[in-house]
């Protein structure tokens, strides 16, 4: 019995059935215990050209599935363990208490790890980011939002460093939806993050000027508007907002206005959003 779910995109119900050529390398998308964004994450990777398996963490613990068969490990969004004992903490404990050796081996290989939202909270608790000097300690925290409640809204992000993930990207415009995304760390950690150019994405205004902590552009109170960071070696990315939820043009909050503006100027409407570039960059890394 194969525990990996077949992607919905193989369904005959699809209208745009043209798939890109898939690369040989595959992604493992972690699931279970309240992770919930695995299917849209699988879809976005498939569109970018990478096949994946959604694997329940227990199937990794049991050894039914081996992490070593994969090149990209994704911790998708969700509410693992209902955010109890701190968002991402309980799932991170489960990984650390059961799978740590496999994860360490994976990190040591030429592989990539992506954590989105709850996934970022998990990899932060595991110490996969920032992982200064290849040392996996908890150096950052994603605390409860400044407003104290979950906040779901579209945010604008801009890359703040050069890395494989954000190559060629000017902006990302996508939903943020979390209760604990308030990035916090010691002054020393912040200094190192800056020095080593590990701040991958920051919240900004629509014109790409810095949010400077101002709500709602910076939705949660994160220090220095930090929305995402990479590991010191650049091969792990964690970010709070959800580019995978805005793959289509019609997923964007302001698409009806944009469509009307394009139409009046005699221009066609695109099918997909610019956010897809982040996932194409992942695929390009393996090409």
């Amino acid at each position: 019995m194969n525990a990996a779910h077949s992607p919905l995109t193989t369904s005959p119900g699809k209208d745009n059935s043209s798939q890109p050529d898939l690369i040989a390398e595959k992604a493992l998308i972690m699931s279970g215990f309240g992770i919930n964004s695995e299917m849209e994450t699988q879809e976005v990777l498939l569109r970018a050209g990478m096949a994946s398996d959604i694997v329940h963490i227990n199937d990794l613990i049991d050894g039914r599935t081996k992490l070593g068969q994969y090149r990209l490990l994704v911790f998708p969004g969700g509410f693992s363990y209902g955010d109890d004992t701190g968002a991402g903490n309980a799932f991170a404990n489960r990984v650390r208490n059961n799978l740590w050796k496999d994860v360490e081996d994976f990190i040591d290989g030429d592989n990539l790890v992506l954590g989105i939202c709850n996934g970022f909270q998990i990899i932060a608790n595991l110490g996969l980011v920032p992982a200064f000097d290849h040392h996996f300690s908890r150096d950052i925290a994603l605390m409860p939002n400044r407003k104290g409640v979950l906040e779901c809204r579209f945010v604008t992000l801009k890359p703040a460093a050069e890395n494989l993930w954000t190559k060629g990207i000017e902006r990302i415009y996508c939903p943020a939806a979390h209760g604990e995304g308030n990035f916090s760390c010691s002054p020393d950690t912040l200094r190192r993050l800056k020095e080593q150019e590990m701040i991958a994405l920051t919240y900004c205004r629509e014109d790409l000027s810095p949010a400077n902590g101002e709500y709602p552009y910076n939705p949660n109170g994160s220090v220095e508007d930090i929305a995402g960071i990479t590991s010191a070696d650049g091969k792990v990315l964690g970010l709070m907002p959800h580019p995978e939820r805005a793959m289509d043009f019609v997923n964007l909050y302001d698409w009806p206005l944009r469509k009307e503006q394009l139409k009046r100027n005699g221009m066609a409407t695109p099918d997909e959003s610019l956010n897809m570039q982040m996932f194409r960059n992942i695929v390009d890394y393996f090409r």
């Binding site: 964004s37 995978e244 939820r245 997923n251």
Partner: peptide, 21 residues
């Protein structure tokens, strides 16, 4: 209410609970 309810998960948001600038 609309903003404390995640209305974008599963990636299918087209016209949500809040519209326009």
């Amino acid at each position: 209410i609309s903003v404390q309810y995640d209305h974008t998960v599963q990636g299918g948001h087209v016209l949500g609970p809040l519209q326009g600038k």
